[in-house]
Design a protein around this nucleic acid. Structure first.
Lengths: 159, 159
DNA sequence: TAAAGATGGTTGAGCTTTCAACTAGTAGGA
DNA sequence: TCCTACTAGTTGAAAGCTCAACCATCTTTA
C-alpha cells in the first residue's frame, strides 16, 4: 500500500457531488416505485428485461447477465416475484439443469402500470434539469466509465 | 395514461448507460471496501463524516443529515459499529433525548487504513478514465441534479 | 466409459435497510 | 401548572442482498 494518489480538492468536490447526486436519484426512484407500485427497482428491471425478450422468456443465467445481478440475487428475487404472480418458472427441455423465467400477463400489466410513474420520475430528476448538451455529455461520460470498468463486475456474471 | 412523456431513443440510451455506469461504480466500491477492510461503504461514510467534525463527534441527527441516512438506518449502523469498537455513544447533557456519536481511535485507524484502497478504486473507476474536461462536466452535471432534487437531498451539508 | 471438472441454479445464514411503532424528553401555550 | 404537540432516537419485524455451500446435470478427457 505504498503511495496513494489522493484526490485533489477539485476532484473531491466532483466526487462528493457525484455521490450525492447518484444516491439521490437512486433512492428517489426506489422510494417512488415502492410506494406507487409496491416493487423494488430490482424487480422492475428484471421485468423490463423479460418484457423485451422473445416470448417474454429468458434463461435464468441470461436474465442475470442482462440485469447484471448475481445468480443468487436473481434466484431469490424471482422466487419472490413468483409469489406475486409476476413471473413463472418453467423447465428447460434441452438442459435439465436450466430454468426459464417467464413474465406473466399479470407481471406485464404490473410493469406497464409501474412504468408511468417511474419514467416520469426519471425525467423529473434527470432529463428535465439538464440541458441537451449536458445530457449528451453525461451519456458520453457514462459510456466511457462503463466500458473502462471490469468486464463482469459482479460475481457469478459469466458472459 | 396517454400523457406520459416517454424517453426518446437517445434519452433511453443515456439512461441505460447512466444506470450501468453508476451501478458498476457503486458495486465495485462496495465490494472492494468489504473485501479489503471488512466494512460496507455506509460505515466508511459515517466515519468520514465523524472524522471531519470537531472532536470527531456529532449528534446522531446531524450525522444522519450529513450522510443523508434515515435516523433508523444510522441508529442500526452505529449500534453495529459500536460492537466493532469504531464508534462510541455518549449522552447529550443539554438535551437528554439526544446522543452523540464519537469516532474512536480504533475507528479512526480503521478509516485511515481503508481510505487507501478506497481512493485508489475511485480513481481507477472514474477519474483515471475521464478527461479533465469530462470531469469538469460531470461535476457540473451532478451539482445541477443534486440542487434540483427534493429538499433533504438538495443543499448538501457535507460539502 | 468412467472420472474429473465445469456449469446452471438454488438454498440458508448473516447482515443491512426500511417502515412503522414506540419511548422519552422538550417546547409552547392557556 | 397541565395539556398538547413536536423532536431525538431506538426498536423489531419483514424484506432484500451477499457469500459460501450445495445438488444436479452437462462436458471433457483419458
Amino acid at each position: 500500500m505504498g503511495d496513494v494518489r489522493w484526490l485533489s480538492a477539485e476532484e473531491q468536490r466532483v466526487w462528493r457531488n457525484y455521490m450525492a447526486a447518484t444516491r439521490m436519484v437512486e433512492s428517489c426512484l426506489e422510494r417512488q416505485l415502492q410506494r406507487d407500485s409496491g416493487m423494488p427497482t430490482t424487480y422492475y428491471e428484471i421485468m423490463v428485461s423479460l418484457s423485451e425478450a422473445p416470448d417474454r422468456t429468458l434463461r435464468m443465467s441470461q436474465l442475470a447477465d442482462r440485469s447484471r445481478f448475481s445468480r443468487s440475487r436473481l434466484s431469490h428475487a424471482v422466487a419472490r416475484m413468483e409469489q406475486e404472480g409476476w413471473v413463472r418458472r418453467t423447465e428447460c427441455p434441452s438442459d435439465k439443469r436450466g430454468a426459464f423465467a417467464v413474465l406473466t400477463e399479470k407481471g406485464f400489466a404490473a410493469l406497464a402500470d409501474a412504468a408511468h410513474g417511474h419514467v416520469e420520475q426519471v425525467r423529473t430528476l434527470l432529463f428535465d434539469v439538464l440541458s441537451g448538451e449536458q445530457i449528451e455529455q453525461l451519456g458520453e461520460i457514462c459510456a466511457t466509465v462503463r466500458k473502462a470498468g471490469p468486464d463482469p463486475y459482479g460475481p457469478g456474471l459469466g458472459v
